[in-house]
Design a binder for these strands. Structure first.
Lengths: 333, 333
DNA sequence: ACTTTATGTGTAACCGGTTACTCATTCGAG
DNA sequence: CTCGAATGAGTAACCGGTTACACATAAAGT
């Protein structure tokens, strides 16, 4: 391994001078700089980040914690984060938490042990002690917390839109899937939907789910149609759940969207290719990841951050699991 | 930050003794050990990996390089790798290469700079100088190279199976999508398919593609039906390409599988939920990632590895984009 | 001509661990 | 009872960078 000493020797200067050249700090004579740069070239030297990190007590590493990269929603988030970080020369230590508190703790610990300068996390436990103790910036992604900056989509509005749409398109006995209780955006969606359902006086039922895992979603889908067989509209807690519901509906011989309308949440890839293609509330996942990274970078650089909570807009994506909207409401105007 | 010195002071011993306790190395009196452990507890001390890594010249970090985590095939690979690594206490520095040589080089450099102990890569440039120079183990994943150990699926056999199936199911004018020329598994699939097509004397055409990007696949799908409008069977280079072909076929009003059969490759999530659900050649992506990590760990631990190239089996997954197999072949027996 | 200030470079301490080496004490074998 | 081996623990060098500080020389003010 080529070290700064080798470069110093080769260029006939001290390590301090090489370091100055590397970091473009302090005075270095133009001729000296050239000598050093030549030496660096010739020896193909790259500074060891570990040594640097040790002295500075900070690395160029960011911890990224997601529940499960295998869930089609998360790759987009991850990619957004990576792209922005990469632009500023940060690298990611990546982990799947599987919605397990222990795994989260373990990862947070290794992030700290590796002098990570920040953590971006789609945690399931935002209030966890491990986060509170940290003295590096934390940004919650697709999550909300009162103590930490966060980037998330407007779940409340999403829920409202979903309910409005499903009602306008004719559903009268709606079942709403309530996502995990401890995840704010999931609750917001739920509340937004219920809000509109109540205001408009449309009958609705609720099915609770505890996680975002596909397996659980499948069970809940069965439960849904068993408990409320006359449901004619389902607002799912996310697209994976919507898929499970769609499958179950089809299995039971129900026509979608004629007999049951289904609206998902997220707009994960390929969801528009199902049959019928799923209508959903789109979250800008890539952008959310990107913004979270951006926020993180500002935090790391100690810039005063005006906006610590970034709420992203959502939109209804009309596809085949909802019926066409009757166009008789606002005839003129 | 709590350091080993704080622990030593608190326990009334030297740092060497604390280190011995931590690493369970050398002689430490039982009473002393308890004192130290108590101090560690009370101060909530965790050793700094960076310092450790600097002295040992190796970290607990593994570089993982994938073309694009957003491509539905890769999350599974990544997850397999992560799960196995996690079992042995290794962590991942993760990067997307976007099939760009420059990005790969940059990532390899940072892996080295951070004292990564190994690199697992789905590289597009296995012969690249940057890999050859490395003196840490490299495992290629879903790729093949003569100089490095690799884990990949049996593409040749997969191609053969695809061709056999599509022929048995009645296609007589097959178009084969040839994946990127520099990616061996893609070529193997292609060759396997062509091999069978030639042996059986079925007419076939070829469309070349340069990358695995969805966008390109869409263009090529258009090109395919423009150049060979009477195609009645398509063997795609992967599922994303198969989706593009399916879409284009449907757009042109062709019935799938009645007029055109389509076989994909990979078996990515949700592909079985399309309409029609895509028949495909399944690669055990999660297992491949897991095995690659396992191989890497053996390499790191310096174990003599008998099997440096691990080829995983593939299988045909029959779904709706291929027709039913005529069952008249072996009537009695 | 004489301070000041700016420029240029080297020495050595430091970051937080690990380990080679040293030294002291205890134990067991002959 | 003696001596080598086993046990237990501390000191300091080391890993590869960064930077405070010292020092020398050149340029700029007065």
């Amino acid at each position: 391994m080529v070290t700064i000493k080798d470069v110093a020797k080769h260029a006939g200067v001290s390590v301090a001078t090489v370091s100055r050249v590397l970091n473009e700090i302090g005075y270095v004579h133009e001729d000296t700089r050239r000598m050093v740069e030549k030496a660096i070239q010739e020896l193909d030297y790259t500074p060891n980040e570990v040594a640097r990190s040790l002295y500075k007590r900070k690395s160029r590493l960011i911890g990224l914690l997601l529940p499960d990269i295998t869930n089609p929603y998360f790759p987009q988030l991850a990619r957004g984060v990576e792209d922005r970080m990469q632009e500023s020369g940060f690298r990611l230590i990546f982990g799947n938490s599987d919605e397990s508190e222990q795994k989260e703790r373990d990862y947070i610990q290794t992030f700290v042990q590796n002098n990570a300068v920040g953590i971006i996390s789609s945690t399931n436990f935002p209030g966890m002690e491990s986060y509170r103790r940290l003295n590096i910036p934390v940004v919650f992604l697709d999550r909300i917390s009162s103590d930490r900056p966060a980037v998330y989509a407007d779940g409340r509005e999403g829920g409202r839109i979903a309910a409005q749409q499903i009602i306008e398109r004719g559903s009268r006995r709606v079942t709403v899937l309530q996502g995990p209780a401890h995840i704010r955006p999931a609750q917001d969606r739920f509340q937004g939907a219920v809000e509109v359902l109540q205001d408009t006086g449309v009958a609705y039922e609720v099915i609770r789910t505890a996680s975002f895992a596909l397996k659980e979603a499948e069970e809940k889908a069965k439960e849904l149609f068993a408990a409320f067989p006359d449901t004619d509209g389902v607002i799912a807690s996310n697209d994976m759940a919507a898929i499970a519901v769609l499958h179950e509906a089809l299995r039971l011989g129900k026509k979608v969207p004629e007999e049951v309308q289904i609206i998902g949440f997220d707009d994960i890839p390929l969801i528009g290719l199902l049959s019928p293609p799923l209508s959903t509330i789109r979250q800008p996942a890539y952008d959310m990841g990107y913004k979270a990274a951006e926020l993180m970078i500002r935090l790391i650089e100690g810039q005063t951050v005006e906006l610590r909570n970034i709420q992203m807009p959502v939109e209804f994506v009309e596809r085949g699991s909802t019926r066409k909207k009757p166009e008789n409401e606002y005839v003129d105007r």
